[in-house]
Every structure is written in structure tokens, then in C-alpha cells.
Design a protein around this nucleic acid. Structure first.
Length: 648
RNA sequence: GCUGCUGUAGCUCAGAGGUAGAGCACUCCCUUGGUAAGGGAGAGGUCGAGAGUUCAAUUCUCUCCAGCAGCACCA
């Protein structure tokens, strides 16, 4: 066989016979590398140590030192080892797929009886046995028909389906460790003993559909996390514990912000503290929108189904709307209304009142629009995904050639607001036409191009999200993450050529003829509910001073100070600061602890000294050190800190 | 909506086929205390709802409701 030349990362090249495997290459370098090797990169592709190399190439041998490859392999091999463990314990279990996830892996199984939480321990124990056995991993490329026949024989229908999904020109790779076999694209470790037996944990069982197909029976998903070593695993479990403390549902209770109850699932009972956050944000948004050239409107909650039929929402979203039926004694038929699930059709009604001229465009119509959607029960999540919510919604009616400018303007508008609220960076996703949609392909071509081009003028950092657009148009999503890293769409911008058509909106153009406006649907925060949830988690409840519901608690150390405490509170309130007195018969330690847990940013303690000197002792949240300040000084300092960012 | 798990005092949780317990919170009393829980006493529960099995159900079974995790959905 002709020799091939392999070039190493240090630039040196060596000749090998064609068909040499990275395992042999590693062995030719040193015995220890041969043992430590986990995989290779061949011309940039992640390569199994057993796969032959047929051409000249750049090669790198990976060990556990290479984080990216090591974690990928560890997690992938854990998926296989777990599947084997499950099939060894319950041989009637069918295997499906088991991919790597961000911190670990999952494997979906088909089995009659459900896995119980207790089963997880049994599976973990079996996995440790498999690792201890150090079974060598072996791989072969099989002929497609042989693989299908094999899986039909062994009774693994999902694997047969999987093979059908593999492209014609791709190899069908089979992998083994011990007697256990799986179809897999690889690469894998040398042997199961390379897995860190003390650095993984099974995290739970849940349901999952085969390739997301709800028409098929649900599979059982077992998920795990895995790392290179025990310390990393412990660090991750610790992170999860810390994240749980930042959960907005927990902080909402601890900070007395809101509650939810059975009688109104998915709806928020805002307590005084939470409502203060809400109105503070709303006031801020109102100022921003006025400055940004928006007009504010308000529209009805209960609207006849005729309007929803006209807009197209009835057909598509009827099942997700709260329907309100009213029996009118003398009416021919029952009036059927729906609580508005969004504001756009109502805004169009305002636009449609009176003739509009091109001079009125762009018309930016904003509403703090309260909407109700009958979200599926499984979708509800604290105040992040609810059935009753208020959007900072607006619709920009404009001409086609204004789309780009309005898009740029909005992204700038949103960026500045996110910065003010403590989110200097965020992700942008672009979603294009879904399978089920309104409007012609030509219109979609136009809308997608206009939106994407305008966005790209501002940033190239746009993730593509194919097929995920709204039914009437493409959309941008502005995404923030919660405490444990789950993504939430907050802001959005959607181009819509369809609704103005359906609801017959027109304006008189320069040419004196009627034209269709384009509608841009946009929300900055998204919904107040979701945004506040994210805000709480992002700050672990320690909200920026201007948003904090209780900014200052003035706490007495002795009851002799009560009068002065009230005076201090009153001075602070005059300066526009949200201050409360705490003159309860409790020790200062007790008060400090309670208000610290309640995330009050500033505690002013007052005892005999302060009364005599007309000072206060300032204790800021998270700081052990206190400082003494004259009353007048602290009032002006705090008043300045309480100023919203747009008033600076 | 689907799969699994959970539902006991305001909160966090323990408990058992014979109608319930702890800590914190709450109320009152003592204490006036200098920066993350001072001491004592008291009050507080149709054990998520309904049905069934049983002499007896909060405990076992079923149905429903709600919550949690994931999947699906997200105008």
C-alpha cells in the first residue's frame, strides 16, 4: 500500500501506510500515549481511534486533557453504557437514541413498565460494573441491508427506523462493548474503563416523543450528567443547588412579591412588593416608548369571535383561547366572544378608523396589553409561562421600504433598554416560514429578506431558527436565560404582510391611491410577567436599587429611637425613596437577618448614638461593613441611586 | 396535552389502616438589645377534591384538580 503523510500539531509529519488507524499512530509515538489516547482529530473531524485514515492529513491525538473532545466522548460513552445497563437489567427494553447534551446525555427507551426513581440507583450500579470491566470498544461498518436485517431479528424497531434516516452515502457504523451492540455514528473511547466512574449521576426520568412526534407513543427518557472528574460533578451539583435558590418562584415567596393558586392556574396574584416592580418597569417603559415615537392606546379584553375569525386566529388558535359565551334572552344566537389572546387585531381596528395617509406612517401604536391564552397545562411555569399576562406590545404600521429602518430602530431601542435593565448581552434568533402559514411564498420571500437584511446591518450574531416563524410572518426573537440556563423568548419583532390584508387596512399613498401598510409586531420586554421572572433570577433577587420594591428599611435598635426612625422614613419618602420603618420589639440582629433574606438593598440602623448625632448607620445588602452618615447626606445619596437609568 | 413524580399548619418537612407532629413564621408576656435568628407561653390543620374498599381511610384503590421535571406547544 502507498504511504500517506500525517502532519502533527507541532508541524512534524510522518509517513504511515494508508489505512493506518490513530490507535496505531499513537502506539508508534509512545506506549503511554497509546494508553491515554481517547480519540483523534483528522483534518478537523473528530475521529475514532479505530477508524482508518486513507489520505494525507492533519492529525491530532486527543487525551483526557482535551476538554472538548473528552467531554463529548465521556458523555456519549456514558449514554451507551447506560443503555447497556438498562438492557442487561430489563432485556425487554427497546433502545432508541441517546445523544450528548450540554452537561451530560439522555437515552430514550421503549418499555412497558415505567422506570421508577428507585430504578436509577440500580442502573447506576450496573453502569459502574460495566466501567470496572474495562470492556474494549469495537466498531465495524455494516452494509445497510445487513444492519436492518440484524435489528429486525433482534427486535429493535427504532434502530431500523433510524437506519432509514441515515443518508444514503453515510456509513452505517456498529459499535460494541462486551456483548452489547449499538448503532452509532461514533467516535467512542477505547474501552469502558476510560469513563470516570465517580463523575456521573442519573438525574431523572421523563417522557419524550420519538423525534418529537406527538402521534406516537411516548418513550421514557433517562437523563444523566457527566464530567471529567468528581470535582467537576460536585461543582455542577453545587451550581444546581445555588440556582434553585435563585428560582423566581422561591424568591417570589421569600420576597413577598406574588403568589399563584389553584383557582387561577397560570395567573399571578401580585402582592404590593411585586406590583411595585411591575409598575416601576411599566413607568420606565412608558417613558421609553414616548421618547421612541410611540403612541399609547388601550383596547377591549372581550372581543367577538368574528374579529378572531377575520384575523385567522380563530382557525389556528381556538383551542388556546378563553371562550366567553353569553346568553342574550332575545338574541337569535348565543354571542361567542374570546378574551383577547393578543392585541394586534384590536390595534388594526384603531388604525382602520378614519383614512390614513402615508404621512401618518410609520405609526407606532403601543399598548400594555393584557392578554389571556389557554396555555397547555404542561407549559405553565411560575410567572414565566402563564395564562394571563401583559405585553409591552406595539404595532408599527409602515410602508414596505420603511421596514429596514424601523427594524434597526427597534433593535437599538431594545438594546438600550436591556442594557438599562442589566442585560448588556442577549441572543437574537431569526425564525423563518413555518410549514403551516398564511400568505404567499412571494410575500414570505420579501418579508424574510427585509427582516434579515435589516438585522444583519446591525449585527451578524444571529442564530438561524428554521421553520419557527409566526404563521403570518418571520420573526426575530430576543432571548434571555433563567437561573439554570433555560432559554426564554422575551423581546420579539415580526414582519406581517398578512393581517393588514385580512383586516383590510389601507392608507393613501403619495400617488393618491390606496395601499396596504405592513405591520411590524414588536415587544421589548415581552411580557411583564416573564421579564420580571428573568429579572429576579438574573439578580438572585438583589434587584437594582431603582427597581427594588422595598429600597430602605429603617430599623430601630432601641425603642427610644422610634421617633427619629419615623422622621428618617419621612425624609426618605419625601425624596421619593421607598422606605419603611421597623420599630418592632426585636434585636437588631434579627431585623438585619430578616431584611437581608427579604433582599432589601439598604438597612439604616438607628440607636442612641444616631439619635443624638442625627446620623444613620448604613448597611448595604451583601456587605458586612457598616458606615455612619449624616441624615441629609444619606437621603441625597440614596435619592440619586433611586433615579431610573433613563433619568441620569 | 403526554410520561413520571408530588400534594399533611403561612413556609420547609416528618408520620401512620384506629380522625396528626417538628422547626421557622404568627399572637401574647419578659427582654431595650449595636448589624444574619434573645427567652417563655399560646394559637393554628375537613391531611388537594370527590367516589370506592373496610367495623374504621388523611393512610389502600380509582377519578378529578393543582404543582414539579422533561417532551410537545408558545399567535
Amino acid at each position: 500500500m502507498a504511504p500517506i503523510s500525517l502532519t502533527f500539531p507541532d508541524g512534524n509529519a510522518r509517513d504511515y501506510e494508508a489505512g493506518v488507524t490513530p490507535a496505531k499512530v499513537a502506539a508508534s509515538i509512545s506506549k503511554s500515549l497509546s494508553k491515554k489516547a481517547i480519540s483523534a482529530s483528522v483534518d478537523g473531524a473528530h475521529w475514532d481511534l479505530q477508524w482508518p485514515i486513507e489520505h494525507d492529513a492533519q492529525i491530532a491525538i486527543h487525551t483526557m486533557q482535551d476538554d472538548a473532545q473528552a467531554l463529548e466522548l465521556i458523555r456519549h460513552d456514558f449514554a451507551h453504557v447506560m443503555a447497556r445497563a438498562v438492557q442487561e437489567i430489563w432485556p425487554d427494553t427497546k433502545v432508541t437514541i441517546g445523544p450528548v447534551t450540554e452537561k451530560g446525555w439522555f437515552y430514550d427507551f421503549d418499555r412497558q413498565e415505567p422506570f421508577t426513581p428507585e430504578d436509577l440507583g440500580q442502573i447506576e450500579a450496573k453502569m459502574k460494573q460495566i466501567i470496572a470491566a474495562r470492556d474494549p470498544v469495537r466498531t465495524e461498518i455494516w452494509d445497510r441491508d445487513r444492519a436492518i436485517a440484524h435489528y429486525q431479528e433482534t427486535g429493535e424497531p427504532f434502530k431500523v427506523e433510524l437506519i432509514d434516516r441515515i443518508p444514503e452515502d453515510a456509513p452505517i457504523r456498529m459499535y460494541w462493548h462486551g456483548d452489547w451492540q449499538d448503532l452509532c455514528r461514533g467516535p467512542h473511547l477505547q474501552h469502558t474503563g476510560q469513563l470516570p466512574a465517580d463523575a456521573f449521576k442519573l438525574m431523572g426520568v421523563s417522557g419524550a416523543y420519538w423525534f418529537g412526534d406527538t402521534s406516537r407513543p411516548m418513550l421514557q427518557r433517562v437523563q444523566g450528567v457527566a464530567f471529567k472528574n468528581r470535582e467537576d460533578l460536585k461543582a455542577h451539583l453545587n451550581f444546581l443547588e445555588e440556582a434553585a435558590k435563585r428560582d423566581h418562584r422561591r424568591l417570589g415567596r421569600e420576597m413577598d412579591l406574588f403568589h399563584m393558586q389553584e383557582e387561577a392556574p397560570g395567573q399571578v396574584f401580585w402582592h404590593p412588593n411585586g406590583w411595585t416592580i411591575y409598575t416601576t418597569l411599566q413607568d420606565y417603559m412608558r417613558r421609553q416608548q414616548q421618547a421612541g415615537g410611540y403612541v399609547e392606546v388601550n383596547t377591549p379584553q372581550v372581543v367577538d369571535r368574528k374579529l378572531w375569525e377575520a384575523s385567522g386566529h380563530w382557525e389556528k388558535y381556538q383551542d388556546n383561547m378563553f371562550i366567553v359565551e353569553v346568553d342574550e334572552e332575545h338574541a337569535r344566537e348565543k354571542a361567542v366572544n374570546a378574551l383577547k389572546p393578543m392585541n394586534c387585531p384590536c390595534h388594526v381596528q384603531i388604525f382602520n378608523q378614519g383614512l390614513k395617509s402615508y404621512r401618518d406612517l410609520p405609526l407606532r401604536m403601543a399598548e400594555f396589553g393584557s392578554c389571556n391564552r389557554y396555555e397547555p397545562s404542561g407549559a405553565l411555569h411560575g410567572i414565566m409561562r402563564v395564562r394571563g399576562f401583559t405585553q409591552d406590545d406595539a404595532h408599527i404600521f409602515c410602508e414596505e421600504d420603511q421596514i429596514a429602518e424601523e427594524t434597526e430602530k427597534f433593535i437599538g431601542f431594545l438594546s438600550s433598554i436591556y442594557r438599562d435593565l442589566g442585560f448588556p448581552t442577549f441572543r437574537i434568533k431569526f425564525s423563518d416560514r413555518p410549514d403551516v402559514r398564511a400568505g404567499s411564498d412571494e410575500i414570505w420571500d420579501k418579508a424574510e429578506k427585509a427582516l434579515l437584511d435589516a438585522t444583519r446591518k446591525i449585527t451578524n450574531d444571529v442564530e438561524m431558527n428554521p421553520g419557527e416563524g409566526a404563521f403570518y410572518g418571520p420573526k426575530l426573537e430576543f432571548v434571555l436565560t433563567d437561573a439554570i440556563g433555560r432559554d426564554w423568548q422575551c423581546g420579539t419583532l415580526q414582519v406581517d404582510f398578512v393581517l393588514p390584508e385580512r383586516l383590510d387596512s389601507t392608507y393613501i399613498g403619495r400617488d393618491g391611491a390606496k395601499h396596504r401598510p405592513v405591520m411590524l409586531h414588536r415587544a421589548t420586554l415581552g411580557s411583564f410577567e416573564r421579564f420580571i421572572g428573568i429579572l429576579i433570577e438574573e439578580h438572585s433577587g438583589k434587584l437594582p436599587f431603582w427597581i427594588a420594591p422595598r429600597q430602605v428599611v429603617v430599623a430601630s435598635i432601641t425603642s427610644d429611637a422610634d421617633d427619629y426612625v419615623h422622621e428618617v422614613v419621612s425624609e426618605l419618602r419625601k425624596a421619593g425613596i421607598r422606605a419603611e420603618a421597623d420599630i418592632r420589639n426585636e434585636k437588631i440582629n434579627y431585623k438585619v437577618r430578616e431584611h437581608s433574606v427579604g433582599k432589601v438593598p439598604v438597612i439604616l440602623a438607628i440607636g442612641h448614638r444616631e439619635v443624638e448625632e442625627r446620623t444613620v448607620t448604613v448597611r448595604r445588602l451583601g456587605e458586612k461593613q457598616t458606615q455612619v452618615a449624616p441624615l441629609a447626606e444619606i437621603v441625597s445619596t440614596l435619592a440619586e441611586e433611586a433615579t431610573p437609568p433613563d433619568h441620569l
